[in-house]
Simulated assay, not measured.
Amino acid sequence: MNLRAKTASVLGAAAIATASLVAMPGTAHAAYPKCDSAKNITTADGTFRQPYYTGTGSRNCVMGSGYTSPGVVVLQVVLNDCYARDLVVDGV
Score class of each variant (00 low, 15 high):
Arg59Ile: 09
Gln76Arg: 05
Cys35Val: 07
Val74His: 03
Val62Gly: 02
Tyr52Glu: 06
Lys34Ala: 01
Tyr52Phe: 14
Asn80Pro: 00
Gly55Cys: 04
His29Arg: 14
Val77Gly: 00
Cys61Phe: 08
Tyr53Gln: 09
Tyr52Arg: 02
Tyr32Val: 09
Gly12Ile: 10
Tyr32Met: 13
Thr43Tyr: 05
Val74Leu: 06
Val22Ala: 12
Val78Gly: 02
Val92His: 12
Gly46Gln: 11
Ala14Pro: 00
Ala19Thr: 13
Asn40Ala: 14
Gln50Tyr: 11
Asn2His: 05
Met24Asn: 14
Thr18Leu: 02
Asp81His: 08
Lys6Met: 13
Leu79Thr: 01
Asp81Leu: 04
Gln50Thr: 08
Ser58Tyr: 03
Tyr83Gln: 12
Gly91Ile: 05
Leu79Pro: 00
Met24Cys: 13
Phe48Lys: 06
Pro25Asn: 15
Thr43Pro: 10
Ser69Trp: 00
Val78His: 04
Gly91Trp: 02
Gly66Cys: 12
Ala8Pro: 01
Ala17Glu: 09
Lys34Pro: 01
Thr43Asp: 04
Gly26Lys: 12
Lys39Phe: 03
Gly26Thr: 02
Pro70Trp: 02
Thr54Ala: 08
Thr68Leu: 02
Tyr52Ile: 08
Thr68Asn: 11
Gly46Pro: 13
Gln76Trp: 02
Ala84Asn: 15
Val77His: 08
Val73Asn: 03
Val72Asn: 03
His29Leu: 14
Val72Ile: 15
Val22Met: 11
Gly64Val: 01
Thr18Gly: 14
His29Ile: 03
Ala19Ser: 14
Arg4His: 12
Gly66Phe: 05
Thr42Ser: 15
Ile41His: 09
Val62Leu: 12
Tyr32Trp: 11
